[in-house]
Design a protein around this nucleic acid. Structure first.
Lengths: 131, 131
DNA sequence: TGAAACCCTCACATTGATGTGATGGTCAAG
DNA sequence: CTTGACCATCACATCAATGTGAGGGTTTCA
C-alpha cells in the first residue's frame, strides 16, 4: 500500500510516516516510480510506534527496541545483543516506574472526583451506579 | 526556601521552576529582595507537576487540574466548576487509556525478555530466582 | 572589602514531534 | 491531453519543554 492508505489506516499523518522513516523506525520498499510501498505489517508497526511514543520513549530508543517487539512473535531473538537486552530491560523498568506514577495520579484524580461526587450528592451506596 | 534549595530537593532545574511559575503552576512568595520564597508544600507540588508532565499532560492542562489535587486533601472542592470536573474526568480517562497502552507495551517487553532468557538458558524452574 | 555563591530578568538556542507549503513527478479517468 | 488525486523532496514554521548565557543585584563569610 502507499503512504496515503497507511496514513488512513493508522490515523498518522503522511508527514509523520515520512518522519518515522527518516528516524529509521519504518523502512518501506519503493515502487519503481519512487513511491513508498508499505505492507500490511506496517499498520501494526506504526501503531506500536505511536504507543511507544505515547509512552514517552524518544524515537532513537524506539528504533533500538522495536526490532525486539514487532516480529511475528517468537523464534526470533538471534540479533539480540547483550547491550540491546540491557537497554530493553532498562526501558522496560522505566516504563514500569512511569506506569506507577501515572496510576498514582490517575487514582488521585479519581479520589478527588469521588469526594466531590459524595459532597454534592450524599447518597446511599445503592445509588452509586448512576454513571 | 529559595529556588536553589527547591531545585535540589526536587531535582528540577532552577530554569524549569521559573518556567513552571511562568506557566502558572507554582506561585512562590517573594522576599523583599525579590528572591522567590517557596514553602515546603511546593516540594510535593513540583513532584506532582513532574508526574503529570511525565503523564503527557501539557502545562496548560496541569494548571487547570492541579488545584483539584495538591491540596491538603479534603474539604476543599468549593471551587470545582462543572467544566473543571469534566476536564478532570476526561483527563483521568485519557490517563487510564495511556496506562493501559503503556502496560501492554511493558508486558510485551517483558515477554520478549523472558523468551530470550529461556532461549539462552533453558533451565529448571527452580533456578529462576537468579537475578 | 572582596570573592563565592546565591538570586533576578531577559533573551536567544535547541530538541523532538509535528504542521504547512512550494515545487514538481505519476497515474488513472474523462 | 488534461485534470484531479496521488506521490516525492525540501525547507521553513511551530510548540512545549528545556538549556545557556549575559548583565546585574544580594548575601555570606573570611
Amino acid at each position: 500500500m502507499r503512504i496515503g492508505e497507511l496514513s488512513r489506516l493508522t490515523g498518522v499523518s503522511r508527514r509523520l510516516l515520512r518522519y518515522y522513516e527518516e528516524q529509521g523506525l519504518i523502512v518501506p520498499d519503493r515502487s519503481t516510480n519512487g513511491y513508498r510501498d508499505y505492507d500490511e505489517r506496517n499498520v501494526d508497526r506504526v501503531k506500536q510506534i505511536r504507543g511507544l511514543l505515547a509512552a514517552g520513549l524518544p524515537t532513537r530508543i524506539i528504533k533500538q527496541i522495536l526490532p525486539c517487539l514487532d516480529k511475528p512473535r517468537s523464534i526470533h531473538f538471534p540479533d539480540a545483543t547483550p547491550e540491546m537486552l540491557a537497554l530493553l530491560t532498562s526501558e522496560r523498568d522505566k516504563l514500569t516506574d512511569r506506569i506507577e506514577m501515572l496510576t498514582r495520579n490517575r487514582d488521585a484524580m479519581t479520589e478527588y472526583l469521588t469526594e466531590v461526587e459524595q459532597h454534592r450528592a450524599p447518597v446511599a451506596p445503592g445509588q452509586l451506579h448512576s454513571t
